[in-house]
Amino acid sequence: MTRYFSKTAAALLLALSLASCQRTWVASPSLAETDVPVDKTITADPQYEARIAPYREQVTAKMEEIIGTAPVELGKADYQSPLGNFVVDLMLEQSRSLYDGKIDMATTTNGGLRVPIPLGAVKVGTIFELMPFENELVVLTLDGNTVKEFFDIAAEARYAPIANATFTVQNGKATDIKIGGEPLDLSQNYTIVTSDYLAGGGDNLSVFKKALKSEKVGIMMRDAITQHIRQLTAKGQPIGADTTNRVTILP
C-alpha cells in the first residue's frame, strides 16, 4: 500500500515541480524500493532486442531438431513402464560414465515425467516437454534400512520406477528386494542416482533426506536424456525400453 501511495504522491509532487521548472521528466524508479521491477512498463531496448533476435530464432529452430526415433510410444504407468524404465536406466548408464564411484540404482518419479515419448521422430523440444524442470542428477548414499524404507514407499505409492533392482509388492510392502540381482543387505550402504529435486525430499520422498552423502553427478537430467538418445541414434539404435519384469505384485 505504502509503495503505491508514495509513488502517487511522488508523481503529484513531480507534476507540481514541472509546472515551475522546465526539466524534462524521465521516468525514474521510485526509491521507495530497493528492488526496481523490470516489468511491462519498461520498453525493451531495440538494440538489445535486435541482438537477441537471431539467438531466439535459433532456439526455436533447435527445438525442432530430430535426435532419434521411437518405434513405439513410451508411456508411463504404475510401478514400471516403458517411459519410467527407459529414463531410470539411462540415468544409471549416463551417471556411471561421469561418476567415479559405484552406483547401484537409479530412480525418479512419474510426476517428473511430464509427457510420453511419442511414436516416431523425437525432437529436442520433446525432451524439454518431457523434462521441463532444471533438475540435476545426484548420487545419494543410503544405509540398508533407508533403502528398505524407500522400496516400501515405491511399493505403496507405485510412482517410482527403479533401475537395476527388482522387488515384490505384498500387502503394500516391498519384499524380496534384489539390487543388481543380490538380495538387499540391511547392513550395507547403497548408492542411488536421482534428481536433486527428489534428493531434497520432493514428491514425498523425504526418506532421501536421510542420505549419508549427496554428490552431484554434474549433468542435468534433461541433458542426460538428450545425450542418451543421441548416443542411441549414433549407434543406429531406436529409442526403446527394457520391459523385463522388475516388480511382481502379489494379490
Binding site: A27, P29, D39, I42, T43, D45, Q47, Y48, I52
Partner: peptide
C-alpha cells in the same frame, strides 16, 4: 534473456534483459 511468458503465472510478463538495459541506461543518465 526474455521475460517470463505472460500466461498468468507468478511474475508472468516480468523480467527481460532488453528491458533491463533500458532501465539501466535511464539511471545512468
Amino acid at each position: 534473456i526474455d521475460p517470463f511468458p505472460d500466461d498468468g503465472r507468478k511474475y508472468g510478463g516480468m523480467g527481460g534483459m532488453a528491458r533491463r538495459a533500458t532501465l539501466i541506461e535511464q539511471i545512468r543518465k
